[in-house]
Structure formats: C-alpha cells, structure tokens
Amino acid sequence: MRPATVALGIALAAAFAAPLIGVYPVFLMKLLCFAMFACAFNLLLGFTGMLSFGHAAFFGAAAYATGWLVTARGWGTLPAILAGVAAAAALGAAIGALAIRRRGIYFAMITMALAQLVYFVCLQAPFTGGENGLQGLPRGSLAGLLPLKSDVAMYYVVLAAFLGVYALIRRIVHSPFGQVLKAIRENESRAVSLGYEIERYKLVAFVLSATLAGLAGSLKALVLGFVTLSDVLQANSGEVILMTLLGGTGTFLGPVVGAGLVVTLEEYLSDVVGGWVTVIIGAVFVACVLLFRRGLVGELAALRSRR
C-alpha cells in the first residue's frame, strides 16, 4: 500500500475513535464543520480558479436559517438543515450570477460587497436576534430516530456529513463537469472557442460551493447551539481563505489540514495567550506565504513527485 493510503486509513480510524478515547467531541465537530467549509471554498478557488471574499455569507445565512427554523418555528432537525442548505444555494445563485460577470480582483470585490450586504441584513432583521444572535438551538433528533443531544451521537452525524461532502467534492472534481472546470481554469478563451458557455459552468460551480458551505454553517449552528454575527462576518470569509491557502489550494486534503491547524490554534492558544492568537495565526500565514506557497499539503505532494 502507498504511504498516503496508510496515512489516510490511520486518520479515518482516528476520526472514528476520537470521541471514544476522550477527545472533546464539540471541538472535533467544530473542526469538521470548518474543514467542510474550507473544502467547499476550495472547490471554487482551487479547482475553478475563482477567489471569493464572501463565503461567510453562505455559511452564515444557512446557520441563521437553520437556527431560526428550529427555535422560532419548531422545525425538525433534518428539514431545518435542508432549508438552511437551500437558503445558501439560493443566495449562492443570486450572488454568483452577479459576481461571475467579472474576473479576478473584481470578482472578489463583488462577492465581498454582497456578503457585507448579507451581514447587515443579519444585523438588522428582526428574526436574527441582532447583536445577540440566536441562542439555545435544540439539536432535536435525526428523522425522529437518533436523538442528537449527546455530543458523541452528533459527532458521528457530523463526521458522516463531512465524509459525504469530501467524497462529493472529489467526485465533482473528477467528473465530466470537473473536467470542463479545469479547462476553464487553465484557458478560459480556449474553452469558449470550443463552444462552452463558461458563465454557466462557473455559476454551477459557485452554487455547489455555496451549498456545501451552507451545510457546514447549518451543522455548526446545531453543534454549538447558537448562531452569532461572527458566522456571517467578513472575518469568517477571511479565515476560510487562510485555512485553504495554509493547507494548500487545489489539493483535496489541504483545506482539511488548514482548517484543523487554524481551529486547533484558536482553541488551545486563546486560553493561553488570549487576543494574541490572531497575531500568531497571522504570523503563521505570513510564514506560509513566504516559505511554502503551495500550502502544507501542496508542498508535501510537490516534494513527493520530485522524488
């Protein structure tokens, strides 16, 4: 067996065993949600070549939609998650349709501006709880069968969702559609000259990415039991970019590793150094940009292929 396969097997076994050997499940779930978020973001940046500065809008909107439905409306867990994901998809279609008309920095700016709009709606709208956000979300049960109150049960649901998303992204990248996306990333005008309406492909990629980012947001809301403005904040969009670049864009595992690193640093260092954690993560990011441009996983892969 190849060493990568072995490592992946060990990681998978560890993921299944983690809550049983005493690792704090809420921390792991948070990590998995952000890993899912980063993977969804990477589908756009790494495999389509579009840098969105507003992905928190999809993550946050889905979190708010799910949160509001389970608290104010008393919806069940699964329908509320699906509704949150649908909200993210619809928002992705709206923002995407506007943003993909431009390229590069202009694309990034449009996504950022529209995401700010979503933030202000969340701040002002009557149903989002303003500065307080939504508190006390019940986790309910999965289709009335599996109660999710226990962290361990919830953990396995989140893990299953994460693995599903990860597999789906691998499939999307290695599909006829993914093949066209690669062609567009490599040479847009050539793809047009072969008869591809590239805007439509970009829009589908954007909506897929927004949808999966939404799933991450909905799950995170249920895991922690609250939704706050920080979910939809610009800083959250920045964080997912950082995670993806740190781990390695255009690699499957990169965003997972990047999310793991950032969430772990935030979780454990904020107890020790308080507000300095932002500075430390910033320094790590600078080091990453200067020393290993391809990100951690990207550099490892490059090192291996050189041998």
């Binding site: 499939r171 999307i172 290695h174 599909s175 006829p176 559609f177 993914g178 093949q179 066209v180 690669k182 062609a183 490599e186 040479n187 005008s189 050539r190 793809a191 000259s193 072969l194 008869g195 591809y196 439509r200 492909y201 589908v204 897929l208």
Partner: peptide, 30 residues
C-alpha cells in the same frame, strides 16, 4: 493555446466531450 496541466489526451477529449451532453454532470465519474 492548450490546457497546459491536462494531459495531451484530455486536451482533445475536452473538445469531444461537449457532444456527449454530460458536461454538467458533476455526479458522474470521469
């Protein structure tokens, strides 16, 4: 104008692929 990081075969296949009508099928295997 080629797609530099696709293989030579994939470059040509991209042009053939549109005919299949599955170019939006993100759920199908490569």
């Amino acid at each position: 104008a080629v797609f530099p990081h696709l293989t030579v075969l994939e470059n040509v296949r991209i042009a053939l692929q549109r005919e299949l009508g599955t170019s939006f099928h993100f759920w199908q295997p490569e």
